[in-house]
Amino acid sequence: MENVIDLKDVWVSYDSVRVLESVNLTVKDKDFLAIIGPNGGGKSTLLKVILGLIKPDKGSVSLLGGRPAKTRRYVGYVPQYHSSNLDFPVTVWDVVLMGRLSHKHPLQRYNEEDRNAALEALGTVGMLDFKDRQIGELSGGQKQRVFIARSLVTKPKLLILDEPSTGIDSRMQKEFYELLNRLKSEIAIVMVTHDISAVSVYVDKIGCLNRKFHYHDDKEISPHDLEVSYQCPVELIAHGVPHRVLKEH
């Protein structure tokens, strides 16, 4: 089985500002990778490169074994949480069905298969009871689950999440990461996040991105890696394990 994502020596600059520098990244089937790093470190750019929304200046990008522009429709994508469009007049059901749109021509209506896929996805994220609710009436965590359901309706092999914990309170976050934990038995997940503490419990691999990508094949990030990425000392707190590691600033 080929790799889900394969980035080789990827360079990106905006005008003359270099954003990504020689990034290499491999994601295999059923990997759960978290990418952390400071603001402006290129995390969103990296996701856009993976999805083919930005063409790198140099280097090769392969997504699900093909060119991202062709293959990205088979990826489940959960964009960064925007609070701006929340009074938009759509129901949860409308939003989830949107995930099936890439396979529809104009004039073609949603059919039984689409509806069943939407029901199944809503069931997976536990939001079936909220099917007819207005999207703006939901809490942050519920919305995020609806957006995951929308990304799951095409039965993707890869799920990409951009800062999924924004707008969710900490109690909901635990539930949310447990949902991802269940999903990872079936698909590969790549997540960009600020939330270093939650990451350490659930993910398999962590990469730190600050222009350059520091990456290990396991989740043992060392304070040194973080310092290199954030360019300042970082507190490492691990939840859910008997001891915590705290380092002085």
């Binding site: 999805l51 929304l53 990205r72 429709r73 990826v75 994508y77 964009p79 469009n85 938009f88 759509v90 409308d94 939003v95 069905l97 949107m98 995930g99 749109l101 890439s102 529809k104 104009p106 949603y110 929308r150 095409t154």
Partner: peptide, 18 residues
């Protein structure tokens, strides 16, 4: 349906290959 998706979430619409 396409316009609804575009107006609601342009970035998602782009990623889903439209």
């Amino acid at each position: 349906k396409h316009f609804m998706a575009l107006c609601f979430d342009e970035e998602f619409t782009k990623v889903s290959g439209l």
